[in-house]
Design a protein around this nucleic acid. Structure first.
Lengths: 190, 190
DNA sequence: TAAAATGTACACAGGTTAGTATACCTAGGT
DNA sequence: ACCTAGGTATACTAACCTGTGTACATTTTA
């Protein structure tokens, strides 16, 4: 049986709890209880809490980035338009009542041990997001597309942090205005 | 006895451990052991682990922002120069081998409960940093100083996150280049 | 039909956590 | 000389943590 539903239930329960409370603060008993599945079964699917965390992060990464890109593409057609639409999408994200910052950044904060699998998954997710932004900048035929992409990433990450700190989605608007200036300055054509 | 040295030893040991490992991951036994002070004495000075965390965050906030501002002011005289020097200072910070992201962001990630004292301390620290940046922008007589300050804050916070994720201080350079463009665009005069 | 995987229920091991109890020591102030 | 406050040392509680043992039920698949 591929993609057992129990397994997915556990991952979803874990994700909700980890997002809201952090990783160390949530025990496996709480997760299994929330999923309505015994702890023994949890350990049938994941050989340790760390494996469950890894699976949850990978699951979240896939869905989250997928939704993110689809939302961006639904908001604008042109590459430049999409580059800016990114900030509208994050603003909506910040507005959700269950928003609590970037799960990957949180995970890296709680698991600082160099080279840990958890850290690698988080880093890979960030790389893929960066690639996506870089692709948009390149399609927009802006000069210094790579550098522009880096700068836009900084604005996004900064906006995430400040949205979490201030419990406000205003940071997304500030970031968008900054991005407009940076794009403008990057020249309309290559 | 004011400002007992034992108390400070405990705070410093706690800070080192929290910075490196996070808050939940470090127990009071580890802290008292590292400080060379018995746990019973720790509980003479702080009535709970949370109180110790609060004291450590406040202690860190004071010293960190002080050092930060002094470094900035040592690097440039003009307000615009200082606005840019901020990124040189953070770059140096990222380069330290014990750098592991922003302690306050980490604390907020691990203690998400709304209105918690720990969160308030972190938020206040961010407010003060914002005020400092805003002050520089105003002294530089740039138009939209307040908005520019918000944008620069986003670049700083984004750079912190990416420095932690990629274990690289490169993000500071990208942020600085973006800041140059934003400042330029904010007009040389009001 | 039989074997294998997945599931339940529940107790338990072994370790760590925050925080306390008890008893004693020492230095300073009055 | 005495009392109080800060400190030491050690053992403890009670809760919580991850992970397992055991015995049995259900479902899948060959």
């Amino acid at each position: 049986m591929i993609g057992s539903s129990k397994r997915e239930q556990l991952i979803q329960a874990a994700l909700e709890l980890f997002s809201k409370n952090g990783f160390h603060a949530v025990g496996v008993d709480t997760i299994s209880e929330k999923a309505g599945i015994t702890k023994r079964t949890l350990y049938h699917h994941f050989k340790s809490k760390e494996e469950l965390i890894l699976a949850a992060l990978r699951y979240y990464d896939e869905r989250f980035r997928n939704d993110f890109m689809r939302s961006v593409e639904g908001k604008a057609e042109s590459p430049v338009g999409r580059l800016l639409a990114v900030f509208d999408v994050v603003e909506e994200w910040f507005g959700k009542e269950d928003f609590s910052g970037c799960l990957f950044v949180g995970a890296m904060g709680e698991y600082p041990e160099e080279g840990m699998p958890i850290r690698r998954v988080c880093q890979e997710s960030k790389v893929l997001t960066r690639e996506y932004i870089k692709g948009l900048a390149e399609k927009a035929q802006l000069k210094d597309a790579k550098q522009l992409a880096e700068q836009i990433i900084l604005l996004i990450e900064g906006a995430i942090t400040m949205a979490q700190v201030n419990k406000s989605s205003l940071s997304a608007l500030h970031a968008k205005k900054a991005a407009e200036v940076l794009i403008q300055n990057s020249g309309p054509f290559v």
